[in-house]
């Protein structure tokens, strides 16, 4: 898995340095992924180099973060067994199990 830790903002011209949050572990397809409390699932996955969150039902196309504000539903995954979860709006919790979704999910 390609690690792209530099995607996380470390210094921001207006917001300054973000407060360091508690590190937690989520599981993507059973593999541990580092995450920080208070960030959405999608942020943790992107920082870990994961871009394909689901595949579509008709064309089997990959989808990931598109709008990132909870409108487009492109980033939906199976979270702790629940399909159709918007990962851009759902905050990480320690031990969460995330799986990619195919089509409408089960």
């Amino acid at each position: 898995m390609e690690i792209t830790e530099e995607l996380r903002i470390k210094n921001h011209p207006i917001l300054q340095e973000p407060e360091v949050q508690k590190e937690v572990t989520i599981f993507y397809n059973g593999e541990p992924v580092k995450a920080y409390e208070g960030e959405p699932i999608s942020a943790a996955l992107m920082a870990a180099g994961i871009r394909t969150f689901r595949r579509t039902v008709r064309r089997n196309e990959p989808r990931g973060v598109f709008c990132a504000i909870g409108r487009c539903t492109d980033c939906m995954m199976v979270v702790d067994g629940r399909p159709n979860t918007r990962t851009c709006m759902t905050m990480v919790q320690d031990g969460m199990r995330i799986e990619p979704q195919f089509g409408f999910g089960k």
Binding site: F66, C67, R71, C72, T73, N84
Partner: peptide, 8 residues
Amino acid sequence: MGLCQGKS
């Protein structure tokens, strides 16, 4: 008619 209900 999909999941986002036309928002996009």
